[in-house]
Design a protein around this nucleic acid. Sequence first.
DNA 1: ATAATAGTGTCTTTCAGACAGTATAGT
DNA 2: ACTATACTGTCTGAAAGACACTATTAT
Lengths: 302, 302
Amino acid sequence: MREIKDDIRNKNGLTEKEFLKQYNSNKYEKPSVSVDTLIFTVDEKTTNNYRKLPEKELKILMIKRGDHPYMGKWAIPGGFVRINENLEQAANRELYEETGVDNVYLEQLYTWGDVDRDPRMRVISTSYMALVDKKSLKIKAGDDAEDAKWFSVEAKILSEEKKNCENGYFYTKHIQLILRYEDITLKAEIIETKKYKNKKSEVNYEIISSNDIAFDHAKIIVFALTRLKNKVEYTDIAFNLMPEVFTLTELQKVYSMLLGKELLAAQFRRKINHMVIETEESTKGGGQRPAKLFTFNPYWNE
Amino acid sequence: MREIKDDIRNKNGLTEKEFLKQYNSNKYEKPSVSVDTLIFTVDEKTTNNYRKLPEKELKILMIKRGDHPYMGKWAIPGGFVRINENLEQAANRELYEETGVDNVYLEQLYTWGDVDRDPRMRVISTSYMALVDKKSLKIKAGDDAEDAKWFSVEAKILSEEKKNCENGYFYTKHIQLILRYEDITLKAEIIETKKYKNKKSEVNYEIISSNDIAFDHAKIIVFALTRLKNKVEYTDIAFNLMPEVFTLTELQKVYSMLLGKELLAAQFRRKINHMVIETEESTKGGGQRPAKLFTFNPYWNE
DNA sequence: ATAATAGTGTCTTTCAGACAGTATAGT
DNA sequence: ACTATACTGTCTGAAAGACACTATTAT
C-alpha cells in the first residue's frame, strides 16, 4: 500500500491526512453490492441400454429462497459482499459454502447494475461463473443445504428475427430457459436484442417471463451460457468440467453438448489432441471396445 | 416490474409488503460504487516527410486529479454511481461530460473490488471501455476541462518468465505502461501472473510502481489494452476507432498498431474485404497514388 | 524519374470438414 | 455373430501466409 503523504494541500488547505480525517463517505446514498456465483457442472443422464453411453447434461446449482423477496423461488447462490473481503473472496466463499469445493475455475462474468433489480433497495451484483467436475462434489452430496439443488439447464431458441433500421439492424432472439430438477421445472423467457447501428453494437437482455426464477437471475444464466459456449470454442475452459481422467468420447460429448451441435470424431480428436495426455489406463466393462483414458495437458498452449 | 404480493408469509409471519416496510438496508456497512470509463481513440503522429503516411497512435483520455487522494496524479475519468442511474448510464454520463460524444462504442470491462483500492473508503469500481474516433471529437477540442488530456498509450513487455510448479506453471510478464502527453510522461510497471494449476487458470495483475497514475488505474489500463487487442482479432471492434471513411492502408495501420505486429497488405485486404464497402471517393494530394476510400459494412457478419 | 503508397495474382502450407474403413470389447 | 463404441486414413476445399509483381500519383 501507498503511504499517505502530508505535504500537498488541496484548495481547502488540507493535506491528505487532514482530508481523509474529515472525509465523510456517507455524503451520498450507497447501493448495496452482492456477488452471485453460477456453479456449473456436467452430469450424466441415466441410460436404459447397457451398451449405450450416457448422454452429458449441464447442471447449475440453484437455491430456494427462504425469505422475501422472491420467497419460495429459486435463485443463483449469492450474498452481500462483506466490507473487508474482496469480490473474488466473496464468490469463493459462496462457492465453498454451497459445494464444499475450493480451488476450482472461477471467472468474473458481468456486473448487473439496473436500478430496480431488487425490491428491497438498490443492489449492484457482480456475477461469477464457477466450473466444477461432478466427481469432486461426490463427498459433500449437495444435500446439506436442503434447498440447494442441481438443475439441468437448457436454453432453447424459440425464434430469431432481423429488423433493419437506418444505418444498421436489430437482431432479436427469443430464448426459452428451462431448468429441471426431478419434478420441478423452472421456465423463463428472455429476449436478447443485438443492436448494430452506426458501427456501435449493443446487446441487451430483457426478461419476458420468469415464473420461478428469482430476481433477474434468468438473464444472468442466459448470459453465462452464452459466455461459456463462446469460451469453449477458443479456450480450454471445458476441461474444468471434466474429471481427472476421461475418454475422448466423453470429452467430445461435453463439447458437443456445450456447443449444441454434433461433432465428427476424427476432426475433434485432431483438434484437441495437443490438449490431452494419454494414460496407460483404459475403460472396461462398457459392453464394447475399451477406450483409452486421457488427462488434461496443462502445457498445451506453448 | 413485478408486483409485490401480499399472500405468502415468511418465518416471522410477515408478508412481502410488511417485510419490505420493516427491511433496513443499512444493517451492514456498504461499499461505495464507482464507474471508470477508459476512453480510447486513434490519432496520427506528425510526419516530417511529405510522402510518408503518418503512423497511427492509440490515445487514452486521462484527468488530472484536483483533490485528495492522489491529488495532482492522473486518473481514468470516473465517478460515483448515483443511486438512481444504472451503470451504463453512469459510464455514458462520464463519457459525455469529458468528450461531448454520445452514442459510441461502450463495453463493460471488469469490476475491481480489492479492499484497499481507495484510501477514503471501500470502493468497488466497474470499468467500461469506450472507443471513439478522433474526428467526432474535433468540435469539442477536449480543452474545456483544462486537466483532461489525451495521452498516447504504450505497453512494453520488459520480460517474460515461466516457472514450473507441481501440476502446472506460472507465467509472469513484466509490463511497462507508458503514457505521454507533450512533455508529461506517466510510467507504471505491472506484473501479470498467469497461474495454471490443476486445470484452474487465473490471471492476476500487480502494480509494482505507478508514479503518476492514480489508484490502481495502471492495471486497469493494462487490462483494457489486453482485452482490446484480443477483441481486435475476432470482432469488428477496431472500426469504432475509424472515421466515417478511411483507406484500407489506414485501417491496416490501426490493426497493426493495436495488434503490435506488421501485417501483409494482401492477406489483410482479403481478411477484412467483407467488412468494408468501397465508396466512389479517393484520397488525393498524398504525394503518391491515390487510395480508394471505404466505409464500414455493418451487415458483414451474416 | 522517383519515392512511396495502392492494389493484385498466385504458389504453398495448413487446417477444417466429410466420410469411409478398421478395431475390439461384452453379450 | 452382433452391437455400439474406439480410432485412423485420406480426399477435398477453404483460408492463411508469403512474396512477387503491377499501378499510380505529387514532386
